[in-house]
Write a protein that binds this DNA or RNA. Structure first.
Lengths: 342, 342
DNA sequence: GTGAAAGCGCTAACAC
DNA sequence: GTGTTAGCGCTTTCAC
């Protein structure tokens, strides 16, 4: 029997999907016993369990997770809020997060806040309304109002890609100030005298740029800054580089707020006959998957985006299951990968 | 009054979040009137509405969308299944989809099927269990079993990035066969005699490659194919190019299954002193945001990923709201953007 | 090990 | 316009 799956008996009230009641009737048990097979199979006798599993197969029953969530107030859902999904920066993090959640039986619901953070409040309502077991803020800057709502919601939160001093709850990230200063140091140590910056306008990039400039200032060096849009693009990098190369005092080193921008800077410099790294050193940020393969290979700031995603995922799952996560604050640090462009 | 939001009165049973009952009590109305303000505000007298809205503010009430979903069997949730989120190919589509849904009050839940499509069935259960109003399959190949389950679930489905002849429900895409043949034509017309292919192993890329080869065959030309991993990387492109350039009959044109691979091929060729486009023409696929900016600018197959996402979103929303979408099958076509690399 | 009964938070039907 | 009643599909006591 059971040639095809799909609804067998008469159509049911709403949607026509099979319910615990249908399965229970077919298996000759009470509805809650079906629930038990799904959630605590060890509490059910083997014979009964088999009969019920067979009934599940025959009816094509797929548990209604919404209903389960209402009753148990455990939604098995985690929300991630990103500025936009189409910047390459956070992809590894989202991927690793999804996989980690998945492995633990959780689903990811994705919200785009945009780089301007308008609509942030509406988005938050939509998300909190789903009663997720946790919320991951990935590279998002949030308003005071959002903070308050998140705090009030009691939902576990992980903020990532930064190390706030006043976190809402948990944090996985690194210091953008340290990063900027470290890159400045690195370039000056290599004997560069006229460092410049090409940076997107987003909050974190700004802080790296400022820290870079401050570190240079300490050595009595003024840094030129060129702004470009967020998220960073190759074209934006080329334009900014063109402006920089046209100046009277041409920089001999450029720190870019993303690898894509850095590739643009290298491309433009090459097009102008400026040799990278001899006349111009270029440092990127993000260590995207193409950065090692281009010519010259890009020196860049490496961040373990996957690790951020995994940690975020397991911290949220821990909390969702009532465990205390190993740490509430993780500094994943960064590293400068020296390659051909410097 | 109402200095801060957040729960006011005594803690409530589960989770501590305010419910319709709390709001109703505070506003002196019945619970369903609160529900009405949320869902059909025009049915409620202005005075009552204001009182309720004030009560909502004071209590910090956020509607439990899970409960709403169970009762109304409308979850305001759409699921998207992608092979992996970290390939750049589908990002614009996911972004446009998210935005379109968002504008209509729907949220996106994201599932990664992986390129191998294992775990596909488990993923599908998790997704169908949420009773989403629609499912978008973005660049995913699905098993016969998955097809059956989707069909049985009665949930509106849009398959994208391809034009299946036997769609589950709706389709937004283009023909990979036509694409492959068109690129072949394009290269032969430009006088290339020894075309080759560097392609990832994913299903669609394979079909483009085969169609390319078949078109060449018709003109009596044999095509060399080099395989690389999926998703395509710059490094993979370089390796494949190195192998191709080492052969006795060196190709004078290479069609790549992604722009990232193409950039790798160009890089490797340049490193070998092979001039692009004079000695070697290179065509990419996807028109990623960097492709126009590199040197030489990449000739590539352009696809409007955003449009695919928007269309998918509005088709699903239409169906979710009981409307018939304008079309069930949309061919978004492709175009070959001729730039410096050919 | 299993069943009966209650109830999660919400919304749809039907009164008035 | 608004309240009363019922019930979505599930899980959680609490019996036995």
């Amino acid at each position: 029997m059971a040639k095809a799956s799909g609804p067998k008996k008469r159509a049911r009230r709403s949607g026509g999907a099979a319910t615990v009641v249908d399965v229970a009737r077919l298996a000759g048990v009470a509805p809650n016993t079906v629930s038990r097979v799904l959630n605590h199979p060890e509490q059910v006798a083997e014979g009964t369990r088999e009969r019920i599993n067979e009934a599940i197969r025959v009816t094509g029953y797929t548990p209604n997770l919404l209903a389960a969530g209402v009753r148990s107030s455990r939604s098995k859902l985690v929300a991630a809020i990103v500025p936009t999904v189409s910047g390459p920066m956070f992809l590894e993090t989202i991927q690793a997060l999804t996989e980690t959640l998945d492995r633990n039986g959780y689903q990811l619901i994705l919200g785009q806040a945009g780089y301007d953070g308008l609509r942030e409040d509406e988005l938050l309502s939509a998300i909190i309304g789903r009663r997720p077991a946790g919320i991951a803020l990935i590279g998002v800057v949030h308003s005071a109002e959002s903070r308050r709502r998140l705090l009030a919601s009691q939902i576990p939160v992980v903020e990532t890609w930064d190390l706030t001093t006043t976190p809402i709850d948990m944090v996985v990230g690194f210091s953008h100030e340290e990063t900027g200063a470290a890159v400045c140091d690195f370039l000056l140590r290599k004997g560069r005298k006229r460092p410049a910056i090409v940076t997107g306008r987003d909050e974190r990039a700004k802080r790296r740029a400022l820290a870079f400039a401050a570190a240079a200032q300490k050595q009595g060096i003024e840094v030129q800054i060129e702004w470009t849009g967020a998220p960073g693009t190759l074209a934006g990098g080329r334009e900014a580089a063109a402006r920089l190369l046209a100046r009277d005092t041409r920089p001999d080193a450029i720190f870019c707020s993303s690898d894509l921008i850095a590739l643009g800077v290298v491309t433009e410099a090459t097009a102008h006959g400026v040799s990278v790294p001899y006349e111009l050193a270029v440092v990127g940020f993000g260590d995207l998957n193409f950065s090692e393969g281009v010519i010259p290979p890009l020196t860049t700031v490496h961040l373990d985006g996957s690790r951020i995603g995994e940690l975020t995922g397991s911290m949220l799952v821990d909390r969702a299951e009532g465990r205390q996560p190993a740490q509430k604050r993780v500094d994943v640090t960064f590293s400068i990968l020296e390659r051909g462009s410097t």
